[in-house]
Computed example of a mutant assay.
Amino acid sequence: MKPITLTHLDLTIDLAAHRVVKDETVAVEFAAEPGSLMSLEGPNRYAPGDALITGATGERWVVSRDRFDAKYVAHDGVTQGHAGAYRNVPVAVLAKQMHEAFSIARSEAGDVLHGEAGDWVMQYAPGDYGVVKAARFAKVYKRAS
C-alpha cells in the first residue's frame, strides 16, 4: 500500500493528537559548512551554524540554529553555542500516532520525512513538523500534564 502524504496538517483540531514533552540529553555539533545528513525519517539539509544532533538512542537529525537556541540549553559544563551535551527545554508539542505509512514535509518546501505505521507525526508549531519512530517516542516523550 502506498504511504499517505500529509499536507496542511493541523493537530490542534485533531482529537487523536496528544500534547507531549520530550525529556532528553543530546550530543550536539555545529555545522561548519552546508550539507545533509540522513535521519531515520529522511534527509535533513543544514546550513553553517545549524545544530547536528545525536539523540540518547543514537538517532541523528538537524535543528536550524535559530530554533536550536530557543529549544536547547547547554548541560554538564558546556558553554551555550559550543559542541557538547544539551538538554531540551521542556515544551509541550502535539503528536499523533499514525496507523499507516505516511510522509510529510518538515516545513513549506522543506525536506520530506517518512514514517511507518506506529510512528508519530509531530507538530512543533504551525507549518513545522517532524516524524518520530515509535520506539524512540516511547523512550523520550511523556504526555504533558
Rank of each mutant, 00 (worst) to 15 (best):
M1F: 15
M1I: 12
L6F: 05
T7N: 02
T7V: 14
L9A: 11
D10H: 03
D10Y: 03
I13R: 12
A16T: 08
A17I: 03
R19S: 08
R19A: 15
V21L: 09
D23K: 14
D23M: 03
T25S: 07
V26G: 07
V26K: 02
A27S: 15
E29C: 15
F30K: 13
E33A: 13
E33Q: 14
P34Y: 05
S36C: 14
S36Q: 10
M38C: 11
M38P: 05
L40V: 14
G42T: 08
G42Y: 05
G42N: 07
N44S: 05
N44C: 13
N44Q: 05
R45N: 07
Y46P: 00
Y46G: 12
P48I: 08
D50Q: 03
L52A: 05
I53P: 00
T57M: 12
T57F: 08
G58Y: 02
G58F: 05
V62A: 10
V63P: 04
R65H: 10
D66K: 12
D66M: 10
F68Y: 13
D69T: 09
Y72S: 04
A74E: 00
G77D: 10
T79Q: 14
Q80L: 06
G81H: 12
H82W: 11
A83C: 11
A85G: 06
R87K: 14
V89I: 07
V91F: 15
V91M: 15
A92M: 01
V93C: 10
L94Y: 06
K96C: 03
Q97S: 09
H99Y: 10
F102T: 01
I104E: 01
S107E: 15
E108V: 13
E108T: 06
E108M: 08
A109K: 15
A109M: 11
A109I: 10
A109P: 05
G110P: 03
G110Q: 08
D111P: 11
V112G: 00
L113V: 06
A117V: 12
A117S: 14
W120N: 06
M122F: 05
M122A: 02
P126Y: 11
D128L: 09
V131Y: 01
V132C: 12
V132W: 02
V132M: 10
R136I: 14
F137T: 06
K139E: 15
V140T: 09
K142Y: 09
R143F: 14
